[in-house]
Design a protein around this nucleic acid. Structure first.
Lengths: 225, 225
DNA sequence: AAATTAATATGATAATTATCATGTTTTCAT
DNA sequence: ATGAAAACATGATAATTATCATATTAATTT
């Protein structure tokens, strides 16, 4: 099993603020898991007894609304931590996490991390910074949901995925989402999402290879109203 | 001027985790401000060089969307801290703050608080908890905006204000919002918000005294679809 | 490989919400 | 107190989005 002290992934998250000794200790009690595409990492309401450090793959965080629809609130990628919020507020998760890819994650038990949070101010400040960033993103998300049309939101989602997760060799978006996933990010009916994607295709903004999507006109997508 | 060590307000926020010495020091460099209803506390994009501790009154945090509409993202009340996020991420504010009431706030300069954040793990953990809570609220807000109708969102906003901020002696909501404010919370056109409120009135869910609103049927509001 | 199921796609229609117009009431400055 | 401005209110209509129905295609199971 890999050693945290030597792992590059931690550079991308707040674990980088831990001392070598702390990392060695954590390394000793962490467990590595492989999660298959589509698998649930944790459910809404579930108690997560630790934090996941994502070594590879991507997952979606979603919340079931009262009308039975899932709303995707955030996507978590290689390098990110998962489950921080629940850890800190000492509550069960308010979100469900599902792998969008095959994933590799390390699970660090709660007790270990909490101890470090309370002893190492550098570490807790890093976590604070991450949460501050998440909070800002959430604000932006709220404004987008509230003030923009479905077409705009979907265009922005495509741009976001393109910029954040990149493309495959054939230029299709590297993260493969179902049309339903798109609808659940944008907060619309699946049919509406499909319709808008079809329209984008007709307008030459995107092209599709099966359910894969390729962005053909990034600037055009940015101009969508 | 009041002394932080003796101030009751701090019990409601993370400042309670500061030591007596820290509080005395902060007390020495804080400034107290009175802010009138409607006044801007800080603008979007402005650098806030510290944190506000709200001693009295309420303000709204909003963000201007590209289409020129303001989206209210959060309301900050007596006891809350204001400007934490920007402080931590060391960025200019992503939100505008406007007083909804006459307010009394204490302003604590950045340098003082940052020092404490980095030295006092108890304090930074309290701030972490607050941010974790805000983040959870933001998630819920996103889901509501994305999945619920304007009618539902407005009903929930009324309930939220009723529960969080209470009522005047005549039972009207103690926080007086304009119809435009309601629209900007719910993310709809002002006319639509007015229409829905009129409908609620017709249905006996609320009554109005001028622009004041009184909740007449809380359970009914909860059932709105 | 055929059969079943799930995902994608599109049309028709209904419901929701936005926009523009216009009138009324309230608030505020003089 | 009065006139101007802002906020509130409502109608008419247009635009957006949801819902239901029904194909079509792709994926999965047997």
């Amino acid at each position: 099993m890999g050693k945290c002290e030597q792992c590059i992934i931690k550079q991308f998250n707040s674990l980088k603020a831990l001392t070598k000794e702390e990392l060695v200790r954590i390394s000793g009690c962490k467990t590595t898991k492989t999660i298959k595409k589509g698998e649930v990492i944790f459910e809404e309401g579930e108690t997560i007894n630790g934090v996941y450090c994502v070594k590879d793959g991507i997952c979606k965080l979603s919340k079931l609304s009262e009308n039975g629809k899932d709303q995707i609130v955030k996507m978590v990628v290689k390098g990110d931590l998962l489950g921080q919020r629940s850890l800190i507020s000492n509550e069960s998760s308010n979100l469900q996490a599902v792998a969008l890819n095959d994933m590799e994650v390390c699970f660090i038990p709660k007790s270990e991390i909490i101890a470090d949070l309370q002893k190492n101010p550098k570490f807790s400040f890093e976590v604070l910074k991450e949460m501050a960033h998440d909070l800002k993103e959430a604000d932006d998300f709220i404004v987008n949901m509230a003030q923009k049309s479905v077409k705009q939101r979907l265009a922005e989602t495509l741009i976001y995925i393109y910029n954040s997760f990149g493309v495959n060799p054939d230029n299709t978006l590297s993260v493969l989402l179902s049309r339903e996933d798109f609808a659940n990010i944008v907060g619309t009916a699946t049919e509406s999402a499909i319709r808008v994607l079809s329209q984008f295709k007709k307008e030459g903004l995107i092209s599709t290879v099966g359910k894969q999507i390729r962005i053909e006109d990034l600037e055009g997508l940015k101009r969508v109203e």
